[in-house]
Write a protein that binds this DNA or RNA. Sequence first.
DNA 1: AGGCTCGTCATTTTT
DNA 2: TGACGAGCCT
Length: 714
Amino acid sequence: MQLNYLNDLNEKQLEAVKLQNESALILAGAGSGKTKVLTSRISWLIHNQIISPNGLMAVTFTNKAANEMLNRVSSQLGMNPRGMWIGTFHGLCNRFLRTHFKDANLPQSFQILDSSDQLSAIKRLSKTLQIDSDKYTPKEIQYHINGAKESGKRAKDVKTYDPHSQKINEVYLEYEKQCQREGVADFGELLLRSYELLINNASIREHYQNRFKHILVDEFQDTSELQYRWLKLLAGESNIIFAVGDDDQSIYAFRGANVGNMQSLQKDFKIQNVIKLEQNYRSKNNILNAANSIIKNNEKRLGKDLWTSSGDGDPIRVFRALSDTEEAKYILDEIKMHHRTGVAFKDMAILYRSNAQSRILEHNMVSNNIPYRVYGGLRFFERAEVKHALAYLRLVANKSDDNAFLRVVNFPTRGVGNRSIEGLQDISKMTSSSLWDSAIREYKPPTSEKGVSFFVDLIKKIEDEIQGVTLAEAIDVVINFSGLKNHYLNDKDGQDRVSNLEELVSAAITFSENFDENDRNLELIEFLNYTTLESGELQAKANQDALQLMTIHSAKGLEFDVVFISGLEEGLCPHEQSLMEAEGLEEERRLMYVAVTRAKEKLYLTYSQSRLMYGQTQYNLSSRFLDEIPENLIKKINISEKSNAFLNEPAKVRKNEPSKSFPYKIGSTVLHKKFGYGVVLSYEGSSNDLRIQVAFQSSGTKWLALEFAKLETL
DNA sequence: AGGCTCGTCATTTTT
DNA sequence: TGACGAGCCT
């Protein structure tokens, strides 16, 4: 029987979907229908009874992608996919650890720390350990811990070669103990501990290896070293991995993604034939050709070319502005024009490399009454008031959760000052017990609605009140009994926060509707997990017809009729910081590739001669990526030839050869009398007050007046 | 406890 | 420039 979901697949896609007993790597270009291939394959495997729904696992990175997969599979097969192992790496690991909490040496009700919880846990620990937080910043420690976990290492496995990292690793060791004591796990821990459990427990490992005959992975180029090792372990000797990815869209190396996994996969799973999906169903040919020409400048790639049968479309418009304001104005005018001709705001997007660029754009949208939406702010479950409310519940669920304790013991304020808290911490340290236990130990019946003992009574009261009530009612109890609601009602600009608390009650109602077990306690715990694993965009605003503003990173996976890529300047895109990193430029180029391939119909590339950054006007050269697009695909707009002397110079600098005005090559090493060795990053200003930016090995990055700086080339 | 000033810093981000 | 956090003052 031919299934209707297979009907509109092209030959290559169909080949991928119907692969039999072999692992596969599907190189799926932007807009080539990779999600479709992945979900169709799941449906095909199940429908042809090659496996049962329980016999496969499908992993993605984001909840959004996971949900989309679940939805498509459920509509293709007309079944409820809830029990299936389709989810994010973290979500599946969480499920795995809950199932085997005893073997994983975790309390059943263990709570998950998000990044900000993790950071406050580290700050707290540093204080207890009397670590100098200026010398060893909490951020640096967090980076070390996450990096180590990402590569599968416990503190005891990390090799340190200098006193500084030695010290930091000692904090990591203590951090592990603290988390264990408090019954919490950070994001990296979910993965690492799942991996370790599989390694160390043969019967569990064999059980899962026997179960998941097919493992499907989305966005494979984004997998980290540990994630790959975890997948390999689950695959065992004989299971089949179906990995879909695009090395050209690997833009997350900075957070641990390892494109090398694509080569490793081919080797480890003896993949003979990599299937390339190169037909693009999204963009016009001019756009694809531009993307192809840009990305072919990268040396490290598996190689593929996108094509389409949908025609050339408009030329790509390149606009050079005199200032960032002018750039914003041009974009705005074009948007208005397209809107008049019938393009909805929500089908147009402005992309930029860094968030700071959004301000000036937003400013223009506001003054012109264009509805817009900026992606990437605080998410719902990350808001302070929501976290406060949840912290009460977390403490009820797990009394060892010191993070939660500290968050709410004095919020809303109830006269618990630093002295009382430090007192409790001392007791906890001496007796190695939780803050809650210390509070119990010190308990004296409160005489007023103040103090730690009153707080203890409050938590116990909340605990009593929520027995047997629904989750939503429980949250209602918390926000009322805790005094949170009152606190915000009395706050002159707390109205939004009150409605967020109410929104949290609705979120709980929705959660309960989809929760099909009867265990109230379990429901609470799973809800708390859900709030950290799925920090969630509020859906309501998504339906508004609003112009989309976002970074290139957050645009990955999305598409728009009209796309503006703004700020295409050297130093901004490619970002100057990235040029210091190994293979940084190639990743920046992939970023450009991702940005370009977001556009369906029309693509605008804009840059500005001057830009206000950090309160100073910077003069930037146009991005080298613009030069990588063939002239015949481009229509230049309003680029006047009469530019000042400085701007006639750039070609030479861009080619990166020393010239009269720019005597030092960008990227070359120089020696300064006082600052020592450094690398030339860029130039700024014009002939007589030209300044040079140098990153010095020991004294940081500095701007120097070229006229006075005594630099030696090496 | 809350408001204030001053100093610092400034890609990209999901879970 | 402007956001944020530490620390100080009231």
